[in-house]
Design a protein around this nucleic acid. Structure first.
Lengths: 151, 151
DNA sequence: TAAAATTCAATTGCTAGCAATTAAATTTTG
DNA sequence: CAAAATTTAATTGCTAGCAATTGAATTTTA
C-alpha cells in the first residue's frame, strides 16, 4: 500500500516531479506565455493569436490547414480563435474557390499594421528572461530537435 | 537562411517562429502532454490531474496552496480539478482546523492504489520519446534552470 | 486591541486545447 | 463513370488555465 510515510519520497524516483522532463516543459511553457502576456496586452492579443499573426506576417495568406500544421493546432482550436480575429478585422476568412474544403486566412490592413510595433516583442521577452544568448540558443535547438522527433 | 526569399519572410528574423524559444517550448509541451494521454487514459486521468497525484503520492497530504506552488497553478485551476478527483473518491478535501483558510487535500485509498500501476508511466513515456538519456537529462536540467529563473 | 493589510480558496467569465463527430468537397478506386 | 475513401473545416462537449473579484480567516500595524 502506502509504504513510504509522511515526507518520505516515492519508492520510484522516476515518479518525482523534478526527475521528469514533462513537468519542467509544461511549467516553463506556461510561464513563458505568462511573461508574454503584458507585452501582448498592448495589442489585445493572446499568445496563440500572436502566433497566428507571426505566420501571417510572413506570408499574408495561409489556409487553416497550413496554420494548423505549423502550430500543431487543429480546427477545433483554430476556428474559434480565427473568428475572434476576424471580428476585430485583423484577418479575413474565405473559402478557397479552387478547393472549397479549404479556408484561406488573409491578413487585413489592421492586422498587417501590428507587425511593426510588435517587432520589439521578441527582444523584450529575451531581456525579460535574462538568459545568456548561448544557453538560449542551445535550449531552443534542443527543443526544436525534440519537436521534430515527436512530429 | 534569413535572407528574403520567394515566400517573403518578415523583415525581422526574430519575428520568425523558428527563431523563438517560446514556440518550440509551447509546441513541445503540448505534444508531450498528448504523448502521455494514451498512458493516462488507462487511469482515466488528465495530465494535470496526474501531476497532482504525483505530489500526493509523495506526501499524502498537501494544501491547495502547496499544490499550487509546486505546479504553478492557482486555485482557479486547481479547485475544479480537485473537485473532480474528489468526486471520484481519489482524494479528500477538508479545511485545516488550525487555519480555516487552507484546504487540505488528502490521498484516499483509491488514489493511493493508483501509484503502483502508474509507476510504469515515466519509463513508457521515455521509451516513446526515443531520446538518448544524456540528451534527455541535459534538456531537463536546462528547463529546470529556466524555470527557477522565471519563478 | 481595533483597524488595516494580507492570505487563501472559491467563483466568474473568458480563451485555449483536444477528442470525437458531422458535413461537404475532393481524390482515389474499381 | 460511380462508389468508396480521404481531406478539410466546423461543431460539440468537455477540461484546463488565468485574470479579476469575493469573502472569510489570519496576521500585521498603529
Amino acid at each position: 500500500m502506502n509504504a513510504p510515510s509522511a515526507s518520505a519520497p516515492s519508492a520510484n524516483p522516476l515518479q518525482q516531479l523534478e526527475n521528469q522532463l514533462c513537468f519542467p516543459l509544461y511549467a516553463a511553457s506556461r510561464m513563458i506565455t505568462k511573461a508574454y502576456q503584458p507585452l501582448l496586452d498592448e495589442f489585445d492579443l493572446t499568445y496563440p493569436q500572436y502566433l497566428v499573426l507571426l505566420l501571417l506576417w510572413e506570408h499574408q495568406e495561409r489556409t487553416v490547414k497550413e496554420l494548423g500544421d505549423h502550430l500543431a493546432l487543429d480546427s477545433g482550436t483554430l476556428t474559434p480563435l480565427l473568428k475572434r480575429l476576424e471580428q476585430r478585422q485583423l484577418i479575413s476568412r474565405r473559402r478557397d474557390p479552387r478547393d472549397e474544403r479549404s479556408v484561406i486566412i488573409g491578413l487585413l490592413p489592421a492586422g498587417a499594421a501590428l507587425q511593426q510595433p510588435a517587432c520589439k516583442i521578441p527582444e523584450q521577452l529575451f531581456e525579460k528572461m535574462g538568459m545568456p544568448q548561448a544557453e538560449f540558443e542551445a535550449l531552443r535547438d534542443q527543443l526544436t530537435q525534440l519537436l521534430t522527433r515527436l512530429r
